[in-house]
Nucleic acid binder design. Structure first.
Ligand SMILES: [Zn+2]
Ligand SMILES: [Zn+2]
Ligand SMILES: [Zn+2]
Ligand SMILES: [Zn+2]
Lengths: 159, 159
DNA sequence: GGATCGCATGTTATGATATAACGTTCGCGG
DNA sequence: CCGCGAACGTTATATCATAACATGCGATCC
């Protein structure tokens, strides 16, 4: 897995690849990749930014794909539950996963200036946490690791 | 710093010590440890659990110390800003810090069965994260590390 | 002492996020 | 055809958070 979000990249390609990967994963696991679910993933993929459920809903509304909160939340829940998107607790928002399919402990770098979000491998941090928790007898099931700060571009721009 | 929350301990003593430490820290830094702020910290200290702002507010209301959300949020913001309490993003809730005064990168273990929350040193995980972020040119300012799972007691009880 | 200021607090109103609950649709296997 | 389960549509409501403005009160300056 590679970190994405801050550096430039062929974004059309990156979107297409993710969509295809998710499509295949759904087929393989017998999951229904319905139009709403697919469209919500596309909306998230469009930007490497976290979007609130209501931001997503606004887009769906314009396109006649749904107009009430549960529509957006259900699609987002599906994507998150299956590892195709992640929820950023700090922002009450969602991002498309940059490595759908791969088992990974994601870790997010959130720029407070431009709101960019990068997903980066959190293996080391997550392992450190698991071992600390294990010593206490705590059984870790899920880990959320989120850093807030300045992305490279904003560090440079800022000062 | 020591992990607190799961093991038994002399809780009256632990509350008294925290309060005294915070009192002194406020005096030293010229911060106003007002009655509402003090009471909110006491409410949080009473249980090693995360409480929502409205839970805290309910208590304040009963005691005539305030009845509107901003009262609770302002006191909580004060405590969090000065490191006397922490916000748990995952739960939209707050806990008293178990090591007020010490500079630390807290990391939380949240039991999904009994809602206990333990604060444990997150140095290793946080260092791992900072170094990974540094390689990408991201400047980390704050880190939230939160694990959800089963505490020792619930592991044993559960299965 | 009175003017002024900063800061905590009181209060009203509203915004933002999330879910419960129930009905409808539709494909699929019995 | 019937019954079932999964997705979706819709209404209503719960939960979390803040904007904005008014009030009180001690510290400081003159
Ligand atoms: Zn991309
Ligand atoms: Zn940025
Ligand atoms: Zn204690
Ligand atoms: Zn427990």
């Amino acid at each position: 897995m590679e970190t994405k979000g801050f550096e430039h990249h062929d974004h059309h390609h990156c979107i297409a690849t993710s969509l295809r990967t998710v499509e295949e994963a759904c087929k393989a696991q017998g999951l229904q990749f319905t139009p709403v679910r697919r469209r919500v993933l596309e909306i998230l993929l469009d930007e490497h930014r976290a979007m609130g459920a209501y931001d997503v809903l606004d887009v769906l509304r314009k396109e006649g794909l749904g107009s009430q909160p549960p529509v957006a939340y259900r699609a987002l829940d599906f994507l998150v539950a299956n590892g195709f998107a992640h929820r950023i607790e700090r922002l009450n928002a969602f991002v498309a996963c940059t490595a759908p399919g791969e088992r990974h402990a994601p870790c997010f770098l959130i720029c407070r200036a431009c709101s960019a979000v990068a997903e980066t491998p959190g293996r080391r941090a997550s392992d450190a946490l698991r071992s600390a928790a294990g010593e206490l007898g705590f059984k870790v099931e899920r880990v959320a690791i989120e850093a807030e700060g300045l992305c490279p571009a904003c560090v440079e721009a800022g000062a």
